[in-house]
Design a protein around this nucleic acid. Sequence first.
RNA 1: GCCCUGGUGGCGGAAUUGGUAUACGCGUUCGACUUAAAAUCGAAUGGAGAAAUCCAUAUGGGUUCAAGUCCCAUCCGGGGCACCA
Length: 815
Amino acid sequence: MKKYDPIKIEEKWQKKWEENEEFKAKTSKETKSGGENIQKMYLAEMFPYPSGAGLHVGHVRNFSIVDALTRFYTQQRLNVLRPFGYDTFGLPAENYAIKTGISPEVATKQNIDNFRKQAKRLGFAIDWSREINTSDPKYYKWTQWCFLKLFEKGLAYQKESYQWWCPVDQTVLANEQVENGHCWRCGTEVEKKKMKQWFFKITEYADELLDEIDSLDWPEKIKTAQKNWIGRSEGAEIDFAVSGNETSTIKVFTTRPDTLFGATFLVLAPEHPMVARVMTENAKEKVLEYCKNAIKKSEIERQENKEKTGVFTGAYAINPATGKEIPIWVSDYVLMGYGEGAIMAVPAHDERDLEFANKFDLPVIEVIETPETNDDADAVSMSSGENIDGKKICYHGEGKLINSDRFNGVDSSDARDGIIEWLESQGIGKSRVTYKMRDWLISRQRYWGCPIPIAYDKDGNPHAIPEDQLPVIHPHVDDYAPDSTGRSALAKAKDWLKVTIDGEEMMRETDTLDGYACSSWYLWRYVSPDCDDAAWDKDEIEYWAPTDIYCGGDHAVAHLLYVRFWCKFFADLGYLPFREPIKRLLYNGYINAPDGKKMSKSKGNVIDPLDVINSGYGADTLRTYELFIGPYNEDAAWSTKAIGGVYRFLNRCYNLVFNPEKTVDEKVNIVIRNKTTKKVTEDMHRAGFNTAVAALMEFVNELYKNGANSADLVVLAKLLKPFAPHLASEMLEELKSDDEWPTWDEKALVADTVEVVVQVNGKLRAKLEVAVDDLTDTEKLTSLALSEENVKKYVSGEPKKVIIPPHAKLINIVA
RNA sequence: GCCCUGGUGGCGGAAUUGGUAUACGCGUUCGACUUAAAAUCGAAUGGAGAAAUCCAUAUGGGUUCAAGUCCCAUCCGGGGCACCA
């Protein structure tokens, strides 16, 4: 009796895989010289940030999904690329350095070594010759090159504006890194700060990023999250002349130009430059006071107080449609970053404007008739009065225009075009599209990031560091903390700061790049990680990219939007022969603690994958369990008990091969064997890992019942390999078989006789054992069914109708 | 508020085109092996009922020979966005 010893088996195979460089992908050149046209398959997980805590069970789930598919396609003899790397720049390493004095380089290296060791202990089929690390100069040289390309094309630019600022991390943040008004890293409430910062002009690609989403094989929730984030709105920009000040106009953006006649006042954002120009002497003090407070207030504070606030500037604008004077107000419910930072308020048809009008007693003019048959129960015509609570509610749907001069009676949707046309003819407006998405803020006042390859001349103008001087090496300093001026610790590297470009002495940029910049192109670096004359090799990228399957459980809008943006940019420059970087995205769920709560050190409910392995279960059990736990794309709670069931299953697999009790005739398991092959193959294609494992369990249960022969066991081992590769390899070695993925015989999927259920009026009344050949014999089936005792009870006389669906083994008698 | 998801036994979940609801695993119970325990093997396991049978996929309607699956309305959970004009 041999005993399943996962620890020993796994050690043996991992050593073998390492020695043979088993998972090395063939380069494009190698496949070409071989003369064969092998189909490629490029899979990757979102590369990890190597924290000091080592791998957690979430990583294991993510990597196991990719690994199962990697092995599945390898067993189908595709040329498979499955690389691995580390996203190493970032705050945790820097904060750790500030706390302990250990340099980020040293800590990062230790963490990488640990991650690599642990990933190898899990037996992942990784091409280790392609490892990358974003803080390695060989890598970030090309991150800097990417930046320079964007700079060259005007898509990396500097702008002075109000930005999110995290007072704890002492750095600005991108919009995507502010979650509900708090810093995504440390959770501190963010502030607004006026600063000159670097941006990537992602808005340039807003339309394409939006339009191509639908063509992607990505989960719906990610696609809609990106659509909402981009937030395209079509409307018009309209110039309002300032009364008594003929040279000044205020531009507003509206999605409802059809309501122009109902615009009874304008509202400017507190940051709007026109505020200072239009306010009257009398109002000046109050207006400036209001703006100062509003700008200082955090977004959270602004939102907490939903009550509208605002102040009158004392100035008036002319409504171009009516020619009437309307007051200009300032309020923080208008956002500077969107549209023009100014709106025309139509209180009759916009709830926010109505609230404001009610509070400050401003006029309300209804310009869209509320239809009689109004589905929206809340919407009550202004003229008819009030809703149930006695509160005025405005109608914001479509309808016929009223109080709109020559547009009266026109449908609002037609009026939109008509009014835009009229505005254009007057030269005071035009149709316009805006986006919620803002440009991507990429400078960070932090030390442990990729240096921005820019230097400033003595007038403060930015200059690109020439390409032949890349990489701009990340300098070493002794003190990592940012200084009080808000500059990163790079400013402390005095010698490094000075640089000569074209004979002119300049000072280097001390901001570093957002870590998301480093991860925006790594999928292309993997195809030629050692390439030193380009970011990626042209032939290799053509062969391998785009990535066929990408798997991760985070970054729905940020990273996954940035990668698409860079892809389109480099495609436009001719560096990439495709415009979407990721064909298929698998978005995996989290693994929570047994109590269903998020695992966290502070709660003490963290499951360490290495502990699970070392407790005797081994990596195969852990990996199979994490794929069996539920659908890969849903969250799951860890169960200390259920993992035992998976171990028992693998143990049974082992015993079938190494401690066989009886062997049987070739034919006994032929149906279940083919059925399982088909089921597992199809499940792999649709990422149904949990049901694939369940099918294998059924197969094993059947083999225990019937006995197994070597053909059964070879198929079992091959199908098992994506989940439990070490054990499966051991089994295949014992069975003297290769691991090529098995095929199934469609004809062998049915037994000689099958069970047919008999329903009467849709209710199950009997079961028949019918020869397969008789399945198409409608008359025979009907008479067999009608002769059943239990069926006779429910059918008196001739049945009204007999239904035998073509694919179901079922007969339904309508009595 | 808007958008996306989901709601099935004691628990995690399965049901791919409308066609036997509850596969597989956990837990529980019983049995075998053992001096005993663990491990292992076998059996049972949605609810009610002696049984025939009836009732069960969040709730209420509808379509259909047939609905977890399709349609309408409602309730609840998870996620994203959120004063975006």
